[in-house]
Design a protein around this nucleic acid. Sequence first.
DNA 1: TATTATTGAATTGTATACACTATTCTCAAG
DNA 2: CTTGAGAATAGTGTATACAATTCAATAATA
Lengths: 256, 256
Amino acid sequence: MNDRLQNIISQDGSVRGAKSGTQDDVVYAHIFDAILEQRLAPGTKLSEEALGEIFGVSRTIIRRALSRLAHEQVVLLRPNRGAVVAEPSLEEARQISFARRIVERAITELAVDHATAEQIANLQRLVDEEQASFDKGDRGSGIRLSGEFHLQLALMANNAPLLNFQRSLVSQTSLIIARYESGNRSHCSYDEHNQLIEAIKKRDKEKAVELMMHHLDHIDHKLNLQDDGASGDLHAVFSHLIKERKEPRSRKKRAG
Amino acid sequence: MNDRLQNIISQDGSVRGAKSGTQDDVVYAHIFDAILEQRLAPGTKLSEEALGEIFGVSRTIIRRALSRLAHEQVVLLRPNRGAVVAEPSLEEARQISFARRIVERAITELAVDHATAEQIANLQRLVDEEQASFDKGDRGSGIRLSGEFHLQLALMANNAPLLNFQRSLVSQTSLIIARYESGNRSHCSYDEHNQLIEAIKKRDKEKAVELMMHHLDHIDHKLNLQDDGASGDLHAVFSHLIKERKEPRSRKKRAG
DNA sequence: TATTATTGAATTGTATACACTATTCTCAAG
DNA sequence: CTTGAGAATAGTGTATACAATTCAATAATA
């Protein structure tokens, strides 16, 4: 038995982060997606016990996932009072928007420099999916994919700290859209995304940056003060994946 | 091993930002300071049980603290293998340096716009302390205070996301200095810090940004990031000790 | 009726027991 | 002497019990 070989062989097949190995990654990803797709409205209480039941894990795991989300400012952790989906204020929204301009400019420039053909193809695929989602009327997926476009761009920039920061900013922007964008204005960012891809293909850095800045302007302009309260029912939001709690592993007493 | 951690961490010092309320904040702050003041070297193993004994809390608390540190990239959490103080590679160091330029430029501009007299006084006090520490020969405190200067600047920028990002970048920079700063070049950043304060007082944005960029250049130059291009090529890395193949490796005798 | 105390349920905070994994140690084979 | 397999050990991963705190409902008082 060669365990090393086994390890090497089994290293492939990792799909988009969350490997089935660690449970809190799965929980994290599900809650994260639910928030980004706006199935969980800002302000929704995230009860540890309820989430534990839904995902079939103990509060320990839920706690870790919530902690990660809190670090990305997607969730607010109030001591002794539990977690809620973050509700960015207008002032916070303004700060996030400003920070994004700083970061997106740098990312766009780096991406133009470093983008490979394969990465650009990935980018195009994301935008196509995004457009398909909006066409299908799946606004939630569309908004999530729109965010992933900006994350893919950050990935192409080849700078880990900027990528991490971008992840947090994009998530929070999604929250802001959920809170302040009037319901029916479809996001329609895919058109601007397509133009960006063209500029990147042509390695036209100046044009790409200009497009990105305008794109961010448009996002800001679409926001206003209406709020549409989405769901607050955790079980409903996650109904498609509620499962039975794992049978407690047989606890063999250590024979004396 | 346990005793070594005990000695390093329990050195009485300032534990700023430790809201005495929750225990894991205290633990977090102590470990954070120990790393920033370079009493914990990059690569040091951080055993949960040992830390629990040292701080008189359960592993639960230690785990949370380590998790927070890992989010800020100050600690590396290896699944099933425990936590170690992060060891930024040269490539990571370059990326961090780049990201800092982006962020510090924005922060400097914002700080010039928003700085109040009181905040500038705070800034000045930090630099005085920093200088005093270096004069006393307390390099650890000096480096920590140098970092706090940049954090205070970020605070003055009035932008929470940028402040958070800056916190992570400054911490990692401290780690990089610990790992890569060439020999005895004392940090001596306080001189440039003082010039920056002057420019901010005069609301001279252009000058302040220029000083900041030069300051970051100097930091980089004191490190050995310039060339070298450390590779994944083991033969290159260990070329100085490659021996004739036939030479039988002398096995060290077991002590005791 | 409005306001404040008090009590009890519900939820989070922490410690700890057990399960699982990785590392170290020992020893046998080449 | 080196290499590799298997057992012993140490350390992390997860679940759960219990303590501490918050929240809600009721009762008491003005």
